[in-house]
Simulated scan of single mutants.
Amino acid sequence: MSGCFKYMIVTALLLAMQAPLKAQESSYSDLQAIYIYNFAKYTSWPQEFNTFTIAVYDDAAMHKVISQKLVDKTIKGKPIEVKLIYSVTKEDFFHLIYLNRHHSKSLAEVIQNCQQQNTLIVTENDQIKKGAMISFVVIGNKLRFKVNQEALEDKDLIASQGLLSLAMN
């Protein structure tokens, strides 16, 4: 077997193995987007709003997925605006901020800059103990989530009993 032929076989096998991973990753992001929508839908904010704003922290791929999945959706009858952000200042206001696992180091700064606001902070990799209000966790092949009810209450956010009942303890 020639070296070129072996290289082609190995390349084909690697490409074939990556296809399911990309499909799995896409499905994971799609599922997260649906969860994020439901987190927003089943949480109550103390103030009225004309547009519900979701900020995706430095993750263009997830911004695209959420934007596509929520294009015709509403929260409390109001349109949803999905923004891609790279920082959060004290002057910014977002109803919900999503940080993926690669930005967990930025969580403390985001929490600090949202201290005076009613912002729902959603993360990955079980960041509940670090101040996230809702955090995705993967158990086996299942996407689950945890809720920090105390952190929600500190921001005057109220999660529905249905949402709380689906959360992991």
Rank of each mutant, 00 (worst) to 15 (best):
136 F>E: 00
117 Q>R: 11
76 K>R: 08
159 A>Q: 01
40 A>N: 05
38 N>Y: 10
40 A>M: 07
83 K>V: 09
34 I>N: 06
142 K>G: 03
25 E>W: 01
59 D>K: 00
45 W>Y: 09
163 L>V: 09
90 K>H: 13
114 C>D: 02
150 E>I: 14
80 I>H: 01
4 C>K: 15
155 K>V: 04
22 K>F: 14
100 N>S: 09
34 I>M: 11
22 K>Y: 15
45 W>N: 03
98 Y>N: 00
114 C>L: 09
98 Y>F: 10
97 I>Y: 00
47 Q>P: 02
92 D>T: 07
116 Q>W: 11
153 E>V: 12
73 K>D: 13
50 N>D: 15
21 L>M: 13
125 N>S: 13
144 R>H: 08
100 N>E: 07
9 I>N: 08
8 M>L: 15
109 E>W: 13
159 A>L: 07
104 S>A: 11
28 Y>M: 15
21 L>G: 02
101 R>G: 10
28 Y>C: 10
156 D>C: 13
28 Y>P: 14
72 D>A: 12
73 K>N: 13
158 I>L: 10
84 L>S: 14
153 E>Y: 08
131 G>S: 09
161 Q>Y: 01
1 M>F: 15
73 K>S: 12
59 D>Y: 03
125 N>T: 09
65 V>L: 00
28 Y>N: 13
48 E>D: 14
10 V>P: 03
104 S>P: 06
143 L>M: 03
85 I>V: 12
115 Q>W: 14
132 A>W: 03
10 V>I: 15
38 N>H: 08
52 F>R: 12
70 L>R: 02
123 T>L: 01
148 N>S: 12
25 E>K: 07
97 I>L: 05
167 A>Q: 07
102 H>A: 14
151 A>E: 10
72 D>H: 08
110 V>P: 04
33 A>H: 03
8 M>H: 15
120 L>D: 04
28 Y>A: 14
107 L>K: 04
65 V>T: 06
60 A>G: 07
134 I>V: 13
104 S>D: 10
64 K>S: 13
132 A>H: 02
119 T>G: 06
141 N>R: 10
75 I>T: 00
153 E>R: 11
148 N>L: 05
121 I>E: 01
94 F>A: 14
20 P>N: 01
49 F>D: 06
108 A>K: 14
124 E>S: 02
